[in-house]
Amino acid sequence: MYKINKARYSAYLLHAHIVFVTKYRRKILGELHHEAFQQIAGEVCADFEAELRECNGDSDHVHLLVEYNPKVQLTKLVNSLKAVTSRRMRAEFNDLRGAYTKPVLWSRSYFVGSCGGAPLEVVAQYIQNQRG
């Protein structure tokens, strides 16, 4: 399904599952907010030479599946995604601006998990069986 990417001295296929939660878990995101978020997040990912593969969520959180290259520092990508989407969405939607007394949208915390490839049990078994 996915093509393995190649650089001069490496081959890679890296995906991250990222989740942002609204501040105080307030249920403030609607369909228009999710559409705007997806567009903005796609632009931020492109700036990092990454690709937003999937994006969806509910009224109080968003999920992203991002394909990235080894040069990308995930913490910098995540922080940029949170900052830029928060700033631009609050500028575009008055209801988000009025939801909080401070200029915030996302909780300070986030989830990021590596994904793709074989399950961990299969990789572990493969490594264990390497010695002849």
Rank of each mutant, 00 (worst) to 15 (best):
A7L: 11
R26H: 10
A46L: 14
Y12L: 04
V19C: 05
A41N: 07
G42E: 06
Q39R: 15
L29T: 01
A7Y: 06
H17T: 07
V44P: 00
A7I: 12
F20T: 02
Y9Q: 08
I28L: 12
S10N: 11
E43A: 10
Q39G: 12
H17R: 01
H17S: 05
H15C: 00
A16W: 02
K23D: 07
R8W: 02
V44R: 06
G42D: 03
E43G: 05
H33G: 11
K27P: 00
T22M: 07
F37D: 04
Y9C: 02
E35K: 10
V19I: 04
G30W: 05
R8E: 13
K23R: 15
A36N: 09
A11Q: 13
R25I: 09
K27A: 09
A7S: 12
Y9D: 07
L13I: 00
A41M: 01
Y12G: 01
E35N: 11
K27E: 14
G42M: 06
C45M: 10
D47A: 14
A7F: 07
Y12E: 02
Y9K: 08
F37K: 03
H17N: 08
I40L: 12
E35V: 10
I28T: 13
E35R: 13
A36Y: 11
I28P: 05
Y9R: 09
A11D: 01
A41D: 02
G42N: 10
D47Q: 15
H34L: 15
Y12S: 12
E31Q: 10
E43D: 13
Y9I: 02
E43K: 15
R25C: 06
I18F: 02
K23I: 06
L13F: 01
R26Y: 12
L29W: 01
F37M: 03
V19G: 03
A46R: 15
E43I: 08
E35S: 09
V21D: 01
Y9M: 05
K23A: 12
L32A: 13
R8I: 06
E43N: 14
Q38G: 15
A46D: 13
H33A: 02
Y12F: 14
K23C: 08
Y24L: 09
V19M: 10
H15A: 01
V19D: 05
R25F: 09
R25P: 11
G30E: 09
T22H: 00
H33Q: 07
L13P: 00
I40S: 11
H34A: 04
